[in-house]
Structures are given as C-alpha cells and as structure tokens.
Nucleic acid binder design. Structure first.
Lengths: 127, 127
DNA sequence: TTTTTAATGCAACTTAGTTGCAATAATATT
DNA sequence: AATATTATTGCAACTAAGTTGCATTAAAAA
C-alpha cells in the first residue's frame, strides 16, 4: 500500500469541492480559476480523493458525473445512505442527508448498495 | 410532429430489447448478430424508441447506460416508478416492478422524478 | 542534504455519443 | 401500380469524457 502525498493541487481541489454547495463536474473543477493543474491530474486527484474516502461520485440520470464532499459516510466501503437531489431549475446537485428510505427487494435478491437520485425543484428555487 | 416509420432495423432492435432479460448497452445491441445497421443508426433508433415510450434509459452508478423495454410506465412523461437492480455477479441490470418506496424530501423541495439503482446479487446468482 | 517514490504534465489514445449531408426506402398520393 | 414525399440510413468527421505511458518534478523520509 503506497503512501499518499499532500500536494497543493490536491488541497485546492478538495477545498473547492468542500466549499461548494452543489456537487461539481470534473470540467467545472478543471476550469475553476483556483485550479491550475493539468486535466489528467485533475482526474487523478479526483480518483485519489475518492480512494481516501474524502469525496464521492454522483451520477445523475442524464449521465453527468459529479463529485461531492463526503460528510456522512457510513464506512470506508462508501455505501452512501443519502439521496442526491438534482434541481431542474438551477442544475445544482445536492446531497440530502437523513433521507434513506428502505428498499424492499424480491426474495433471493441481496442488497449491497443503493443509489437514489431525485429530480425536482430545490428549496432555493422554490422560494 | 413528424410521423414515425416502421423500419426493419427498428423492429429488430425493439425485439432484442423486449426479449432480453437484462437491460442492454448500445454496444451490446450494436454487436448483436441480429442487428445489421450502422452504429449511428442504432443510436438514432434508440432515441426514437425512447421518444415513442417503448424503451427507457437506465444509468447505473458506474456511468454505464443501458436500455430496457417499458412495461409498467405510468404515463408518457416516463416517470418510472420502479427500481433498477444491478447484479454484481452476472452484471445484469433488471427492472424490479412493484418496488417503489416513497422518498421523504425536506421542506420546500418539490419532486418530479425518482431514480433508484440497487447493486447486489440477483436471484439467479444467489440460487 | 540526499534519497526515494508519489504526483505531475504532456502527448496520444479510447470509448460513447453527435452532426451534416447525400443516398435510400417507407408510406402517402395519384 | 407508379410516383411523390420525407423519414431513415450510412458514412465521414467531430466532440466530450476519461485513460495510459513515460519522462520530469517535488513531497516526504532517511
């Protein structure tokens, strides 16, 4: 197991994701003024941050991949028990904590992971 | 509104998806011996079948897009009230009917669509 | 300070999906 | 049944997202 290093680019990207209200795409991260590294490096940093359990991937139904800070991760296997909300007005993707419905599976099916994405209008846009 | 035509390629692809146990990727469809049309045509047919409400897209957490026959679609807005199950053993993606948990959203959030993908082991692989 | 090796930048590549356009073939019209 | 109309197809070329190899750079350990 190799040791992870604390580089400037990595810190900047983690801060960016941490401070963001919405989950961010690799592209949004890449084009932030704060981020100066290469495109490939951005992807590699995102990979590492995931492996370290600091961020998680969110895939919405439109196939867009975003990254969000982990705040209530249950364990290192990263079975996120929260819902992702995709606002159709402001496009933000938010993690809704404390919203884990129990899924009832048919007989003989075993569950290891649940991903729930809800589309609608968020509180800000509804206000 | 233009009229839709019934072509051979379209029928073959619809049959393929209809008869498949698991949801299929565009690639799997394209490389089926039964499908003879161009790659681009396959994509366009998949688009049309969706617009006609005959099939629907399924995106799993690994960003893989698949297509499944619509069987219990509520209305033409295609708000599928069923869960998609992704077997980690045989890789199949199944539509689980009669499994629609109610999602409880925070105040001020409005819901229009829910997508649930569950990973685990399917009944066949568990047998 | 030197050594070690993780992290970076660059070029090139892959995979998924899209667009424009001329040619083809369903379907409607005569 | 023959013709006209236009949806559909194939092809070439393109975009967008993500990956890989490799030489160079820079954290962190010695």
């Amino acid at each position: 197991m190799k040791k992870t290093r604390n580089t400037k680019a990595k810190q900047v990207i983690l801060d960016l994701i941490t401070d963001s209200n919405s989950a961010l795409t690799a592209n949004e991260i890449q084009h932030s003024e704060l981020v100066a590294c290469d495109r490939v490096t951005t992807y590699r940093i995102l990979d590492r941050l995931q492996e370290e359990g600091l961020i998680h991937r969110v895939v919405t139904h439109d196939s867009i991949v975003r990254f969000a800070r982990c705040r209530t991760c249950v364990d290192e296997t990263h079975h996120h028990q929260h819902v992702h909300f995709n606002c159709q007005s402001c496009q933000a993707v938010l993690c809704l904590e404390n919203t884990s419905p129990t899924i009832q599976l048919p007989a003989q099916f075993t569950l290891t992971e649940v991903h729930i994405t809800v589309s609608g209008i968020c509180d800000r846009c509804n206000a």
